[in-house]
Each structure stands twice: as C-alpha cells, then as structure tokens.
Write a protein that binds this DNA or RNA. Structure first.
Lengths: 102, 102
DNA sequence: CGTCAGGTACGATGCAAACCGTACCTTGAG
DNA sequence: CTCAAGGTACGGTTTGCATCGTACCTGACG
C-alpha cells in the first residue's frame, strides 16, 4: 500500500464519500466511531463485521480513500480513527446526516 | 411500472439515498433541482445527461425509489420534482450537505 | 528463536449496476 | 387519423464491487 492514500481534506470528493457510505458495513464502522468520543482509536477487527480478513482490509481502504477515516499503524495492529475535524470543516452537514441513522 | 414505487417519507433508507447519490449523473439531477425554487418541475430529458433514453429511465427510477424525487406523468411527458419537504423533515442535513458541492 | 495473530497483496468468482439497442405503448400535434 | 416524440420494458454486454481463499509479511509473546 502507498504510505498514505488518504486524500487531503480539500480533495475529498462527495461522490467517493457517498459511495463509501452506501455500504452497510462501512456505514456501521463510521457510525460506531461517531458514537464514541472524538479521537477514539479502534481496532479494525473490533467492529464485528461478518466478513473475512481480506474483505475487512478492502472496506477500510475504501473508507480511508474517501477520507472518512485515518488509519494508524501501531506495531502489528491497525487502528481506525474518524477524521472528525476534517469532516466537520469541509462537510459540516455530513455528521449530522449520519446521526439520523442512529 | 407500479403506479408508484416512491417510498413513504418514513420508509426512506439512508443506504439507498447514499447509493443513489453516489452516481454523478443522479447527483447532477438532484443538484439542478436544488438550485431551482421549491416545487419546480423539470422535464426528465432537460438535464442534459449524456446517456440514452433507456439509461435515463433507469437513473430516474433509482432516484424515485430512493425517495429523492417525485415523478408526475403529464400527458406523455414525465416531470421530475425534488421531494424537498419530505427530505427536510426526515434528513434535514442532506440538503445542506448536497449544497456543499455547488 | 518459533509461533501465532493481525494485516496486506493477489487472483478468482459471483452478482449488481450502468449502459445500450430495439420494440412497444401512449399522447399531443398536425 | 397519422405520426413523431417521450417513456418504459426487455434482453444483452461490460464493468465494477463485495467477497473469499491463499500466500506472505511483520510484530508480540512465550
């Protein structure tokens, strides 16, 4: 993988964001992170998605490339973090919209 | 087609909405309607989408089934209307989010 | 050091979506 | 009535996505 394939905040594309959030599993990830305090890091395999490891990697890559999450490599595990401040700055209504599904 | 396949306002699904808006052509339709006054009806073929008639029908069906637009059969033409009040009631942040792309 | 767990890369598969041409229906206009 | 224009339905193709198994890499831990 390229060292980082997360887009800069100003390069985020609404099309990619909609496509990422159209999938139920990926929406679950974002909603789960949204329900926790800002800055929370979560283990990628802690979301309980009923898919294989390979598919997990795929879903997190889509979320990352859409700019929704940030991934931190902590030794041997991979923590996911919502890019909350970037999202609030560029798409202030997105978080409010997602909250309507909780 | 069933007489109406538009979901009731309370049956709208955020997943379907995201999926519908992930497509650039469908987003163009919604953004165009959004730029006009509430209640504006627009001819389905007036959006300048570079696709065939058959594909046009497909895209408008997706928008309709997601609950984003309402279609009125006027004689032998077919007018599209944004379901603005339903959207504002159930997903108040959606319209604000879409406006960030204009 | 050996081993196991967490991740990624790669290749394959199955399904859904976008797209088109064609045929057909309806209706407003002439 | 006739006909062209707007739409839909249907069948087909192609592309993309979700999914998986497998192989491999890398740290943590005994």
């Amino acid at each position: 993988m390229p060292d980082t394939d997360e887009p800069a905040a100003e390069d985020m594309d609404l099309g990619a964001i909609f496509a990422a959030l159209a999938d139920r599993h990926r929406r679950t990830v974002v909603l789960t992170l949204l329900a926790e305090p800002d800055g929370t890091e979560r283990h990628c395999s802690s979301f309980g998605l009923p898919v294989s490891k390979a598919t997990l990697t795929h879903h997190f890559r889509v979320l990352r490339q859409a700019g929704l999450i940030h991934q931190v490599n902590r030794g041997n595990s991979n923590m996911a973090q919502l890019r909350r401040s970037d999202l609030e700055r560029h798409f202030p209504a997105l978080i409010a919209l997602l909250r309507t599904e909780i």
